[in-house]
Simulated scan of single mutants.
Amino acid sequence: MQNKIILVTTDSFGTGNDPALGENVMETYFTVLKQQSDLPAAIFFMNRGVYCLTEQSLCSLHLKEIEDKGVKVFACKTCVDHYKVENELAAGEISGMAHFVELSATYEVITIA
């Protein structure tokens, strides 16, 4: 995974009738990811994905631990501004689209949509 970045565009993994299920699956994904020895180079959150980095999401606890292991975690500035969550971020740092383009030119992108 070291040669990959993960792009997260939603706060719910998968689609279905029950948003709580998708949020639970997303939390499970990050719980399992943080336990791996081979971690991605970075995780970039866009659109509703930025909610995963907020205090209201249990994902933020796991993402903070992933950050502590050296993985760069980024939140799209345009998205953070749109959803007005800058003061609620519990993990990650705000970055821009130019940075994502740079990362995607360097690393393979895995998208969670």
Rank of each mutant, 00 (worst) to 15 (best):
A20K: 15
T10G: 04
E23G: 12
C52P: 00
N24V: 04
V71Y: 01
L33E: 08
L63G: 02
V50K: 00
A42K: 05
Q35E: 14
K77R: 12
I5R: 00
C76Q: 03
A105M: 12
I112Q: 10
T54A: 07
V8D: 06
S12L: 09
S12K: 15
E86H: 04
L63C: 03
V109R: 03
V8W: 07
N47A: 08
D38F: 05
E67G: 05
C79D: 13
H62T: 02
D68K: 12
K77D: 12
G22K: 12
R48E: 10
N24G: 13
F45E: 01
G22C: 10
N87C: 06
G96A: 09
E23A: 15
E93T: 14
L61Y: 08
G49W: 03
E65F: 00
C59Q: 06
Q35M: 12
N17M: 10
M1I: 06
D81V: 00
E67F: 01
A113R: 05
T9A: 10
N24R: 15
E93Y: 08
T78W: 02
N47M: 11
Y51W: 10
L63R: 00
F100W: 11
D38L: 08
G16E: 04
E27Q: 15
G22L: 14
I66A: 01
E102H: 03
H62C: 00
A113D: 15
K72V: 14
L53Q: 01
A75Q: 13
N47Q: 13
L53N: 00
A105L: 10
T106D: 02
T31G: 06
G14R: 14
S57P: 09
C59D: 02
G92L: 09
S12I: 05
E102V: 00
A42P: 06
V109K: 01
C59G: 07
E108V: 11
N24A: 13
A41S: 13
T78L: 08
F13C: 07
T10I: 07
H82W: 14
M26H: 11
E88H: 06
Q2P: 04
T54N: 09
T28C: 06
C79V: 08
I66P: 01
N17R: 13
S37E: 14
P19F: 11
G49C: 08
S37I: 06
M1A: 10
H62F: 11
K4M: 07
L53P: 02
V109F: 04
I112V: 13
V71A: 03
H99A: 01
E88S: 11
L39E: 10
Q36N: 09
H62Q: 12
K4I: 05
V80C: 04
V80D: 02
I66F: 04
V50G: 05
A90V: 07
R48D: 12
S12H: 08
F30C: 05
A90M: 09
L58T: 04
I110A: 10
D68W: 04
K64H: 04
G96K: 05
D68I: 02
T31W: 09
Q2H: 05
T106M: 02
H99L: 04
Q56M: 07
T10W: 01
V32T: 13
Q36K: 13
V25D: 15
P40V: 03
Q2W: 02
L21Q: 11
K34H: 08
G70W: 02
G70K: 09
E88T: 11
D18V: 15
E65L: 08
L103E: 03
T111K: 13
T15N: 13
Q36G: 04
R48Q: 11
K64P: 00
K84E: 13
I66V: 11
